[in-house]
Structures are given as structure tokens and as C-alpha cells.
Design a protein around this nucleic acid. Structure first.
Lengths: 311, 311
DNA sequence: AGGCTGATCTTTATGCACAAAAAACCCAGC
DNA sequence: GCTGGGTTTTTTGTGCATAAAGATCAGCCT
């Protein structure tokens, strides 16, 4: 049976709104509340009915009034406000990143469904969606194969990334001076200096900042294909990041320095300098990734072994 | 209930094999037959049992013998050998190309399921898969929207296409002289001359030849992301081709001429000439596409007005 | 030994029917 | 034109049946 997560999320959100209100009249129409919570009126009615039953609200229509303030026990726990699809996505990522999953390994949808406590349909839906990244492949009537980030995969992705990012950087320096992207760039630069001064931040601080900078550049291209491609890059980055903790501190420092050169080049609007800084940085990043993957095992053992049957 | 299309397809294929055999001994092991038909031994066993029941085969193991030749009535009709997934894909394409679908229109999975005579699950699976092209978008808890080939979409796709194709063409001219791609290129060139001499071929002849040439170039990049991107280009090309029949003959002639220049440049291995020819051709193609889309209605009505299709 | 065959058994993918959640629709009354 | 009530449709998710793949094993022939 389908879970009513939309209702619960919207209900919680509604409590937040009410929490800041004085007791008494609160004449908000169903339609207006629906717009506010970004849900349908059907859901709003369910919420109002529930609030009425709990005697938080009273009356109807223009005569609706806030009767008592909500307290923490009125809220639904966070766990219950997550869609099944979201839960599957989260748990799959977690499962992959925990490393139970090696390149060339087969993935059983049924097994994942049991692991995640959902139906196979939910898992299947996620896998078909995730397959767009090319990290998993479907074997007809058989199952899924985790391709993983092989050496070829990494090389190919970085070939495309270089093209896209150079192009985007060119578009970036062509942005008008009053474009909000420039302010974002300033903020990002400040964060870089902060992180360089205090390198003891959490692991994810650098990763997040890195993504923020590159996405900002990518967005300048105003091209949905380039933008979407960055989703893949980001995943590969995080995936690889999880696996290669060696020299992490030093690597991050180098990357931050390169970013600062890149940022300065962007601000100078000198196309040649931008190209150089971008190329240099991407070369470093690619080298790091390839090093963490290690040498390819003679091109044979990746896909040939698990394919014992006629597939 | 799951349909046994794999079995039926393999069964038909098996009849084909038997049709060319003399009556008498036919000692082919189950495992070998499984490899031959590219199915599991479980399916082979079902096929053998069926052939035995119909008295086409007799005996077992080394003593298996062909008792009578199969006749046309033994075959399963083609209609039944198609997977549900394949059927949905085919019928969706047909539905889109028939033009029941305008940019900005919502798509109901339930409606499609009824139309195609399948379950909603099959349709959903296909839609999530097809969404990778960006031609349709999912609205959470609501449905799908057919984005279609808008002016922005076309501009963005061609920006990427130019990057990819220039890169691929560069890779192409770096191929060793004995690479089979050169022979393919020769064959494609001959087809071009044939089509120019006899322009009364079927509509799809040109489309197919165009795809063959461009895919050949793309493959030279040895990059899965570029290769996959061509799937999208091909779809957009066919989609648009369906809608713009004006000046078709003349457009095709121009394209064929440009292709010949492109091919000559590739064979000359002159990077500059290749760039020029490739750029010139892509400019033409993009202009054609944009003309067929028509002017964008002031950036506002894209999603609000269901009218103003690509025709 | 070791690979092949045929038989039996187990597991997984595929596809559908169905239930509830949530959106979308219609409509009278103000 | 907005409000709120009732109704219809669609999406989301689950459970389940069957097709098909995969695993296991005893016998048999080199």
C-alpha cells in the first residue's frame, strides 16, 4: 500500500507555519494553503481535517481559528516523510559507497529489494533511472551489472568533461558584469580562503565546495545536456572520493590552490588564462582519479568472467 | 502473467535451423543448442519438449533425430515473439511520430497503457528510460510532460553535437589505414552517389544513410558518452523529419552534396578541411531544424499553450 | 581426474492486477 | 472570481504468478 508521505511532509510544514502565529483567527483558504505547501487541495483537506481533530485548528473557511499552538509531539517523525523512491535512492547510494559492490559484479534487484525493505518494482524503477549514468548495465532477462568506474570509463568521461568545462568557462567570462554568478564566485572564493586557513574541516566540506564551483561554471553554458552531465561527474567524484583517502589533505590543498588560479582567471576574463587554468586543474583531477583506480587488469577479467551463461 | 516470448523466438529460430537439415540423426546437445540460440538451457528444454510433441524431433541425446521437416504452420506468429517492453517502445514511438503529441502536453501513463493494451508498469518503465533523452519530464505525483523539440532544446543539442562531431572527426582521420571504418566510408560514399543519381528512393533511404555516416564518425571517438548522445540526435532527426516534408527533395540533395565534401575531407586527412566541412554541414542541418520549429512564442507560451506544434 | 550430458531444483526477472494516496475535475453558492 | 464540497482520474507502490536463468548432481565416456 502506498505511503502518504506527501501528506505527512506537508502536515509538518503546516505546523511550522502555525508555530509562528498568534492564537485566534487564521482565515486561509484551502486553495491558498495548497499553493503555499505546493500540494493539491485533496491533501490540504486531509491536513485540515487532522488539525481539526487534534484541536489545533477549529472552525472552517473564514471562521477558521488557531486554537492551540503545535508542540513537538504533533509532528510526524522525519523517517516517515521520505518517499519510497527517495529512500531507495538514498539506500542504494549508501550501499554502493559502502563498497559491497565491485566493478563487474552482478546486482540482483530482488536482493536489493529485500535489503531495502521495499518492493522489486521500486528498485527496478530506480535502477532503470540510474542506468542513464552508464555505471550499471542491464542484461536482458538476467539482471544488472555494476560496470563501475573502470579506467576506460574514467578516460571517456574526462574527455567529455574537458570539452564541456572549457566551453562553459568561455560562456562564463562572457556573462554581463551584473550577473549574479559573479557574486556567487566571490562567495566561493572566500570559502576557499577559509578552508585553506582551516584545513581541519569535515571531509565533505571540500567536496561540496568543489561541486559548487564547477556547477556554477557549468550553469553558465545554459545547456541542459552539459548541466545534466555534471550529475554524473559529481557522482563519480563522490564515489572515488570515498575510496581514496590517501594524501587526502594534500590533494585537497592542491585542488584549492588550482581553483583559486581558475577563479582569478575567470575574473580577469582572459580567455587564454581561463583555458590554461581549467586544463591544468582537470589534468590534476583526472590523474588523481586514474591513480586511485589503478592499472586495468589486462582488459579481460572485467566482463568476461561473470558471463558464464548465454546472457 | 509474463509472456514466453524468449521461448517463442528461440523456437522459431530453431525451426529455421532444422529446415535446412536432412532427415535423420541430429545429435546436438542441449548446452550447445543453448549457446546457438543464445538462451538458457531451461528454455532449450522447453523447445525440445515441444518439438518432440509435434514429432519434428524424436529421441534424446545422441540418438536425437529429425523426424519431419517443419512447415510454416509450426512457427509462432511474429506478433507473439515481441517482448512487452519492445512493443511499448515501438508503439510509443509510433504514437509520438503520428503527432498526437505536442510540446508542452501532458502524458498520462494510464492512458498510454490502455492505448497499448499493457499494464501501467510497462509504460512507466519505458517512460523513465526514455526520459534520459530529456524529451519528456516527470512531474512528481502528477504525470509526464512532453517537452518536445523546442527552439532552446534544438539550440542546446546542436551546440553539443558540434563539439562531439568535430572531436570525433578528428579521431576518425587519426585511424590507421587498415581500420575497417575506411571501407565503411567507401561503401557509404557509393550509396551517396547512387542516391544522387536516383532521387526517387523511399523517404527513409536518406535518413538511414545519414545516420550511418554520422554514426560511423561518432564511433571513431571510442567514447560511450558521445556514442550514446547520437541516439538522441537520431531520434530528434527522425522526429523532425516526420514533420517537415517541405522541400524535402531539395534539402536531401544539398545534404548529400555536403556529405560528399565531408567524406572527401575525411579521406584527405586534412584536419582543417574536415573541420570546415563538418561545421558547414552542421550549420545547414541546424538551420533546417530551427526553420521547421518556427519562431518561439515569446518565451512564455511554451508550457502554457498546448497549440503551436513543431509543424 | 575432468569435462560433458541430462535431470532436478532454486532463484530471479518480467509483467500484471489491484489498493491507497494524491492530483485534477466539476459545480453550486456567494 | 473565489470558496469549499463532492467526484473522478492518475500516480505510486505492493504482492503475486509465470518465464527464464542459474545452480547442483549423479552417471558416463574418454
Amino acid at each position: 500500500m502506498r505511503a502518504n508521505t506527501v501528506y505527512k511532509r506537508a502536515y509538518n510544514q503546516c505546523l511550522d507555519i502555525l508555530a509562528g502565529r498568534p492564537l485566534g483567527a487564521w482565515p486561509v483558504s484551502e486553495a491558498r494553503l495548497a499553493g503555499l505547501l505546493a500540494v493539491s487541495r485533496t491533501t490540504v483537506r486531509a491536513i485540515l481535517a487532522s488539525l481539526d481533530e487534534r484541536e489545533i485548528l477549529r472552525g472552517a473557511g473564514g471562521a477558521r481559528a488557531l486554537h492551540r499552538l503545535p508542540d513537538p509531539r504533533d509532528y510526524f517523525p522525519d523517517r516517515q516523510t521520505e518517499t519510497v523512491a527517495q529512500a531507495v535512492a538514498r539506500r542504494f547510494m549508501q550501499w554502493v559507497l559502502e563498497g559491497d559492490c565491485r566493478p563487474g559484479q552482478t546486482i540482483s534487484a530482488l536482493d536489493l529489494a529485500r535489503r531495502f525493505g521495499t518492493s522489486t518494482t521500486a528498485v527496478r524503477e530506480y535502477l532503470t533511472h540510474f542506468a542513464r549514468f552508464g555505471l550499471i548495465e542491464r542484461r536482458q532477462n538476467s539482471g544488472w551489472i555494476f560496470v563501475g568506474v573502470t579506467r576506460d570509463f574514467a578516460t571517456e568521461i574526462y574527455e567529455v568533461r574537458e570539452m564541456f568545462e572549457l566551453r562553459s568557462a568561455r560562456a562564463f567570462i562572457a556573462l554581463p558584469g551584473d550577473d549574479p554568478a559573479w557574486a556567487d564566485l566571490d562567495a566561493i572564493e572566500r570559502e576557499h580562503h577559509r578552508l585553506l586557513r582551516d584545513p581541519d574541516g569535515r571531509d565533505t566540506d571540500f567536496a561540496r565546495l568543489d561541486e559548487r564551483l564547477h556547477r556554477l561554471v557549468y550553469d553558465a553554458a545554459r545547456n541542459r545536456f552539459m548541466r545534466e552531465f555534471y550529475d554524473l561527474i559529481a557522482f563519480v567524484f563522490h564515489y572515488h572520493y570515498q575510496w581514496n583517502k590517501a594524501d587526502e589533505r594534500e590533494r585537497n590543498r592542491v585542488a584549492l590552490e588550482e581553483h583559486l588560479v581558475y577563479i582569478a582567471a575567470l575574473r580577469s576574463r582572459d580567455a587564454r588564462a581561463v583555458d590554461a587554468a581549467c586544463r591544468a586543474h582537470l589534468r590534476t583531477v583526472r590523474a588523481t582519479l586514474l591513480r586511485s583506480i589503478g592499472p586495468e587488469p589486462a582488459r579481460a577479467g572485467v566482463l568476461s568472467r561473470p558471463a558464464s551463461g548465454p546472457a
